[in-house]
Design a protein around this nucleic acid. Structure first.
Lengths: 244, 244
DNA sequence: TCCGTAAAGTTGGAGCTCCAAATAGACGCC
DNA sequence: GGCGTCTATTTGGAGCTCCAACTTTACGGA
């Protein structure tokens, strides 16, 4: 996914290679990164390029440097490249489009404990009838429901630690100029399995919220994407690429 | 606010000085930043330090570099140092504390057009009885209202541009272990005047949402802070400091 | 076995240099 | 005035070097 042409700066070659290893898990948390001197030999670059590569990776939050010791893969690494993400306008998907048409958006959320259906149980990898929490988000345009989002998560799984990190729901969605004519539905399941780190550029082992179904305005499927809920499993860091 | 001791790295001295000038407005948007060569002379540092300073400021989003031309203050600069901010957990202020006590949080928001009272009119710097939009946020713990937040903004002022930037409401609040016994109230006013850039580290001219009153659990005042609504007036960039 | 010291390695700060690509301004020509 | 060219300046990539502060490891003595 990270195409780095041979004409690109050499430091980016180093960055891309190390980043890939961290993202796919071949460099696990706390693993040591080659030192400056080793990088110059391994990639045949100068010290300047090696240093800059390490600096970029550190700024991205993927590695940490310890003076006198070395660089290591961040224990709970956290790269959320903001430029790949879109906040929902007013927390309403496609909010920008609604606003463009002079439609005022509101939403609310309601959680309730339910028992896992076979379908949900399988997705969440829990037993049938186990207690789960269902949260229904209703997004409205001018008071009329525009989108219904249902999120399931295992009961207890979502109970945050005392000083838990923020859990703002952030989504990436492509905004089309779709008309708002029907109630749409998405089913999110909070699957405790490794993120497709390639898509999200998240470290291996990160937990994601997966969009299972998405319908929009007349059952026209919308681009499906992963959604991250920053939770107690990882801290949220909005990284600024810092290149060049 | 940015104390840079003489023992600190020299590039930080340069960064702090330029940053200050941008934040207090003495370097207005699009103003040119001294070139590498000029910085070395002006601050008596080497080229390495000058370059690194510019790189840090660029990574912070305060300046942009144009090859062959120079560095300039970003036209709509936007530094939001995430580490100074706390997302509301589940968008609910003090949500982390509520969760710690096993309390489940929900909230909803409702907007309605009203006429400006003298009080509000003065704060918003509009005429009395002018049309304003009142938004009432109700934050609930286990279904019971925990906090009522009322936000006023001039009608039209908040009407977003067609491709408006996200408007997620982000707040910084100190989380106390306060008990949830009473409905509390905050009055936010979207004041179209320069931010106290020193507090928020936002460039001069940025518009902020100012917290006018805050009560919490038995009329005990909570730390008052500024709140930013990313809107069409500026783009939101989550910057990662990038030092060192 | 335990402890203290010495040596080697690593980060981060800082300096210098060279160069390609891009820009902006000066200059001359029509 | 308008147009094209040429030159000085600037960024960004890349190289090299030196050093202080710190960590890790290896070694030797008690």
């Amino acid at each position: 996914m990270d195409h780095v042409a041979s004409s690109d700066p050499v430091y980016l070659r180093v960055v891309a290679d190390i980043r890939r290893q961290i993202l796919d898990g071949s460099l696990p948390p706390d693993a040591p990164i080659p030192s400056r001197a080793q990088l110059t030999r391994k990639y045949g670059v100068g010290e300047t390029a090696a240093r800059h590569a390490l600096r970029v990776l550190a700024a991205e939050g993927l590695i940490v440097g310890r003076v006198g010791s070395g660089h290591y893969v961040r224990a709970k690494p956290v790269l959320l490249p903001l430029h790949r993400w879109r906040f929902h306008d007013h927390h309403v998907p496609f909010g920008a489009d609604l606003h463009a048409q002079g439609i005022r958006t509101t939403w609310d959320r309601r959680s309730e404990p339910v028992e896992a259906t076979p379908d949900i149980a399988q997705r969440l990898r829990i037993e049938e009838s186990a207690p789960v929490t269902r949260t229904r988000y209703v997004f409205r345009g001018d008071g009329k429901p525009v989108q219904l989002t249902v999120s399931y998560e295992p009961a207890g799984f979502g109970d945050p630690a005392p000083d838990e990190a923020p859990r703002a729901l952030i989504g990436r969605m492509s905004a089309h100029g779709a008309k708002i004519t029907e109630v749409v539905e998405e089913v999110y399941t909070r699957v405790p399995e490794p993120a497709e780190s390639d898509v999200l550029a998240l470290p291996a082992g990160t937990h994601v919220l997966h969009v299972e179904r998405t319908h929009w305005a007349g059952d026209r499927p919308v681009e499906t994407s992963d959604i991250v809920i920053p939770g107690d499993r990882f801290r949220l860091v909005y990284a600024h690429p810092l290149h060049p």
